[in-house]
């Protein structure tokens, strides 16, 4: 009983603080949470949206609708989902999900995390691998249109980096050129480390 009350209270705070965003009324949040999880924490291949940067969410929705983000699963699910989205709705979805508290997926290989942290922070200049931290922030929290990476799932992070190397989502400069410098082991290490970052 107590927990139900506190959850309701949280929801109430949420909806009142969110201004124009009242999930289920002006925008069909359930269309997203079906795959991305009821609290936006992600589910198997659908990435966590909770705590993601709102400008990044808007940009990705635009990239889906304009078919610039052409990764196989994006094509399969998100092209249709974003096809008839107006900018107002995209903004409202983004505001809603970016304001949800984020969690860490913790599904990477713990033994690779230290190596991943080192690449994340300093890169590997000898192999022309840049530091991720300079753009994505010391805590992988992202900023403006640059996404939060901390706590995303190992499988999602790994897939994205692999697919940039394969030529998908080429419009997302500078990520294609960053990913091309990474070996399979380095991608494993980075994705592992980031999955544990809170």
């Amino acid at each position: 009983m107590k927990s139900i009350t506190s959850k309701l209270a949280m929801l109430a705070i949420f909806f009142s603080a969110g201004g124009p965003v009242s999930a289920g009324e002006t925008i069909p949040i359930r269309n997203c949470t079906w795959c991305h999880g009821t609290s936006g924490q992600g589910f198997t291949t659908a990435p966590r949206l909770a705590g993601q940067r709102h400008q990044y969410i808007i940009n990705e929705l635009m990239d889906f609708s304009r078919h610039r983000r052409d990764n196989p699963l994006s094509k399969q699910y998100m092209w249709d989902a974003a096809a008839n989205l107006n900018p107002r709705a995209a903004r409202d979805f983004a505001m809603y999900f970016s304001s949800l508290p984020t969690r860490a997926a913790n599904d990477g290989d713990q033994e690779l995390a230290a190596a991943g942290k080192k690449i994340y922070e300093l890169g590997i200049p000898e192999s022309n691998i840049v530091s991720c931290l300079v753009c994505h922030g010391p805590n992988a929290e992202g900023v403006r249109q640059i996404p939060r990476l901390g706590g995303l799932s190992y499988f999602y992070l790994k897939k994205r980096l692999q697919q940039w190397g394969e030529g998908y989502h080429a419009a997302a400069e500078p990520m294609p050129r960053v990913a091309r410098t990474l070996s399979a082991n380095e991608i494993d290490a980075l994705a592992s480390y980031l999955s544990f970052v809170k």
Partner: peptide, 20 residues
């Protein structure tokens, strides 16, 4: 290419988490 990944393709700089 490594330098320009961060400092911009034309060396124009870039707004990352930190200004480059």
């Amino acid at each position: 290419e490594y330098c320009k990944t961060c400092h911009g393709l034309s060396g124009q700089g870039y707004y990352g988490y930190f200004p480059i």
